[in-house]
Design a protein around this nucleic acid. Structure first.
Lengths: 336, 336
DNA sequence: CTGAAAGCGCTTACAG
DNA sequence: CTGAAAGCGCTTACAG
């Protein structure tokens, strides 16, 4: 039989459907003998509770929504890995919602509410504070717990898992300054992201602290455009270090530098963020801030499970550690 | 009000809930005047049908399941992009199922059936023929349409969207042979994938056709292991060309070759598969077979929508075109 | 420890 | 064109 229902099981086991339901949901309330008998029938019939019916009756769908803007980005995929592993442990299913530029965020959030999810993970670091506020208000009204993963929000009431990007930006810049670099550029994205803003802030702090002028250059992220813009760097401008907001930007920049006969790391130090495979496969290898993206996903999912079981959660703002993975592109330049 | 139900709408509009339901699902059956009135109330109340209740009553969840083994892989993420875009157009939601090595495939498929999905997309190219057969049998018994995306199955009754990997493998190998290369290696993965088997088959065909000996080397895919294994290539073995089953393998190999003072492409031609950003960011850039992964996702989702609406589908085995993106790593070596 | 009954929020024949 | 009623497959107080 393709699809046994709870009635079939109850009939075959000679109990009521309430008992079958209990065996599944509150086994301790059922006499062992009965429980075993029901379990046997369940197995024989290959019975599996209809997830939808259960969701309607119990008002718990054991499904969490993952809201993202671009699945394609390496960090998103990696985070999904962490989320998926933890979700599996806790028996949660995952429903994916891609959110597009042209969508009305507030409408989307309401649509998501209609999905009867038990909780939401927001991976979209393109989030403006206004969007966060809308989301908070819609989900809070409907009592749906949510967590921001790898997104920075200043609202202290919003649960969030991230790393200290400001500090990371500061540290990598500082290390270049200590390495006697003076003209250090920060290569960021044209599109503003909360996390990139943080990186920039850390960079700026380190530069100003050292009495150096911060120079932030925003690229569209398109490799071709990069090449044109970047090429002029080596003609007109003095530059002896560059930090890319992403590894791919850093590698792309480094390649163009090499094409212009700039030596890396001797003439130019380069570093990126994320410590992706790009950093590993580039020549020279790229120094990069290692961000535990998988962990961010896993930890945010675990935080969400706590919120969903409405345990009182002590810390809803989790900052994970990061470190600088030093490689060839910034090997020491010190004169001593 | 946080959560208006269909009753609230019916009450406020002075109609029965059946009429509200019709306005949403069969608007043509409702008098325009009534329809407009109901629509107005729906808007005012911000009513959105409970997706779960609708799913139970209609036995259609407008949700498709995506079954994958490793979200982290670039091709999977890219495919998800295509799937997600088309799903959005057709108003389908996406539920993600990660399948792990240690799981019993057949049990998983039954669990998935319990989710009451309208259709399934299988992105897992680690699929054995046995797994495909189990899946086919479980889903067919339960009348759930499914499509294999970027997976090759010999079973002609199984809907599938892919490219002709055998031909691609043949073509890239042939072009190297035409370029007077003789010792051409194919660098594949230790883990067998249906698509990689196809690539290898095409490579082997081209080699044998030219009277050359096929040499397939399987790497675990871990970059460190690669380095150790590959290093010996340049001591002991004559080798003047290599094709990586993935771009990352090809780039990794190329880097090690360069470290061993092998010139690319003069001494060694290298090519990869997938035409990812790795190919673009490597030095020299990597020649790569461009595989329309996004399109594979999009087309398979569209095929699935047809199957779900039980239209008679003419062609359930779709082969998308590919091409060789020639770059520096294989620039012509011809003597003429 | 177990069963009968109501209810979750919808859709869908069936009448009219 | 519209409404009353049954039903989708479960869970969950409420009795006993």
């Amino acid at each position: 039989m393709a699809n046994a229902t709870i009635y079939d099981v109850a009939g075959a086991a000679g109990v009521s459907l309430a008992t079958v339901s209990r065996v599944l949901n509150n086994p301790e309330k059922v006499k062992e003998e009965t429980r075993l008998r029901v379990l046997k029938v369940i197995k024989e019939l290959g019975y599996r509770p209809n997830v939808i019916a259960r969701g309607l009756a119990s008002r718990r769908t054991t499904t969490v929504g993952i809201v993202i803007s671009d699945v394609t980005r390496a960090s998103v995929a990696e985070m999904l890995g962490g989320i998926s592993d933890i979700a599996y442990n806790y028996k949660y299913s995952i429903k994916l919602f891609s959110i597009r530029e042209d969508m009305d965020a507030s409408e989307i959030f309401k649509d998501i509410v209609a999905e009867q999810l038990d909780g939401i993970l927001y991976l979209n670091d393109e989030l403006s504070e206004k969007d966060v506020e809308q989301m908070r208000s819609v989900f809070t009204d409907n009592q749906i717990p949510f967590v921001l993963a790898n997104v920075v929000s200043d609202n202290e009431t919003v649960p969030m898992v991230t790393i200290d990007y400001e500090k990371a930006g500061y540290e990598i810049t500082k290390s270049m300054i200590d390495d006697h670099r003076k003209n250090i550029y920060f290569l960021s994205t044209a599109r503003r992201y909360s996390v990139n803003d943080q990186k920039e802030a850390g960079y700026t702090r380190a530069m100003e602290e050292a009495g150096l002028e911060p120079k932030i250059f925003r690229t569209s992220g398109d490799t071709h455009v990069n090449r044109q813009h970047f090429a002029t760097f080596f003609e007109d401008k003095k530059i002896d270090a560059a930090i890319g907001a992403r590894d791919s930007i850093a590698v792309s920049f480094m390649n163009i530098a090499l094409d212009n006969n700039v030596r890396v790391p001797e003439d130019l130090a380069v570093a990126g963020f994320q410590n992706t495979k790009y950093a590993l496969l580039s020549r020279p290898n790229l120094t990069s801030i290692d961000i535990p993206v998988y962990d961010i996903g896993a930890v945010s999912m675990r935080l969400l499970t706590k919120l969903m079981s409405s345990k009182s959660v002590e810390n809803i703002r989790i900052v994970l550690p990061h470190y600088v993975q030093v490689r060839q592109s910034t090997r020491n330049n010190s004169i001593d």
